[in-house]
Design a protein around this nucleic acid. Structure first.
Lengths: 256, 256
DNA sequence: AAGTGGTCTAGACCACTGC
DNA sequence: CAGTGGTCTAGACCACTTT
């Protein structure tokens, strides 16, 4: 029996509450394989015909499911070669979650540069109440905390604190150097695929410490970005709070 | 001859630089009808089969084109009834471009309320240099300028200045009351469909005037949002600069 | 040449709407 | 009931990549 057959009435499906189109079921099965790690970032998937045969549906149905996953950025299709699980290393994917731009830039994506990071601190500790809420963990769980300053050639851009739940990053040690592109790091080392990111933006006054780090006068207005990165299975895998100088940089957003 | 036939070699298309899939051509033709006003917001389109027959392609090709337009929010498909040009009045579309949320809101879309507007001023004048750049107009062109304060039940939320190029809103008069949902107004009265919105966010200090209007202490940090609304044909049809209080509100963004 | 994804077609059946 | 969009299939041909 194929993976997608209706177990209650294979030949003549009755009216069911959970009725779903075949391509939705096919997509769910394939997304589950991404979540479980059966299909890992960078891996070549079986061909459309092979998947279709395995699931007992037509190639067109698998194509529709893969098309949706392509739009979502989960897979990358290459004509003549095959379909691959998306990696967070492509430039387009690198900048997918990066919206800060120098003020003089007209074209957002063209001259965009990724700022270098400089660590101020990293530590491990018990999860605070807020961190327990955010990650859905208990007081016994540990978290990793990073504090870093990111700068471009023209000087400091932003200060940020980054928190990771320990349970998703088990073999983490204190001497691991978190790379600039952390989402690629999560992807290749832990198979964690960041599906989306929720951000909250506010204008706040820089504290004396932050103002000094960012080379700003005290009480300068800075842009606060509270970000939670959410994995494919819906769990929050990263919490980040950034304070960005707002005189030389801005946050660009295109709503469609 | 159908609208989509290749004029150079109908039977055996040679390699052409401008080669485009049929569904792309079909989509372009249909989008052009939206731009020209031949198809206006709210209007019922011909059926997929009718469009396919007119363009000389199969129904599946028209469907693929319409699917893309549906994703883009240009048309709305209703099973059993037909395909309609999208209107800006649906709640989902209303909040498509509205990202400001009270701080206590957990669910962004649930208890979201649209703030009421109160006019402070409206006037017509010659386009400034910056306005000429933004709208691609000359010094002879006139612009409409609006200044308004938007408030919720709890008090003022934001102050904003809104600029419209006169040439796109010809029969505008000073006593027209710009409604709360301006994009629906553009759509129903001028057939202007806003396809996307580009925003730049910064943290700035409130001037004395703005601080008083927003009920804030002087020099409070406020969120500045510089927005340009872009119509289907790529022209900028609205420029807006908002200053939003950042103590009770935040700007939410979901990146996928 | 073989295998992959990309496009296009034709036809079947289903679910929903309106008359 | 007819007409609409939604799903699913099967098959053809094309463009591209690899062997």
């Amino acid at each position: 029996m194929s993976a997608l057959e209706n177990p209650t009435s294979p030949t003549k499906p009755a009216a069911r509450l959970e009725a779903q189109p075949l391509y939705v079921k096919a997509r769910n099965i394939m997304v589950d394989r991404l979540i479980s790690g059966q299909w890992r970032p960078g891996q070549l998937l079986p061909s459309e015909f092979a998947i279709a045969a395995e699931l007992g549906v037509s190639q067109g149905t698998v194509r529709k499911a893969l098309d949706e996953m392509t739009v979502q950025g989960l897979v990358v299709r290459k004509q003549g070669r095959g379909t691959y699980v998306a990696e967070a290393e492509d430039k387009s994917i690198l900048f997918r979650f990066y919206r800060l731009t120098p003020n003089d830039d007209q074209d957002a994506s063209a001259s965009q540069t990724f700022p270098e990071s400089c660590y101020l601190s990293k530590s491990q500790g018990q999860a605070s109440g807020q961190e327990q809420d955010i990650f859905g963990i208990t007081a016994d769980d540990k978290v990793w905390r990073f504090e870093r300053l990111r700068s471009s050639a023209d000087g400091p851009i932003l200060w940020e604190q980054l928190v990771l739940p320990g349970r998703y990053f088990p073999d983490f040690t204190a001497d691991i150097h978190l790379p600039n592109n952390v989402y690629q790091f999560y992807s290749t080392n832990y198979g964690i695929i960041v599906a989306k990111v929720n951000e909250q933006l506010r204008a706040v006054s820089a504290s004396d410490d932050v103002a000094e780090l960012l080379n700003l006068p005290p009480d300068s207005p800075v842009l606060e970005i509270d970000r939670r990165a959410i994995a494919l299975d819906g769990t929050v895998v990263e919490w980040r709070r950034s304070l960005c100088r707002s005189d030389t940089m801005h946050y660009r957003n295109e709503l469609k």
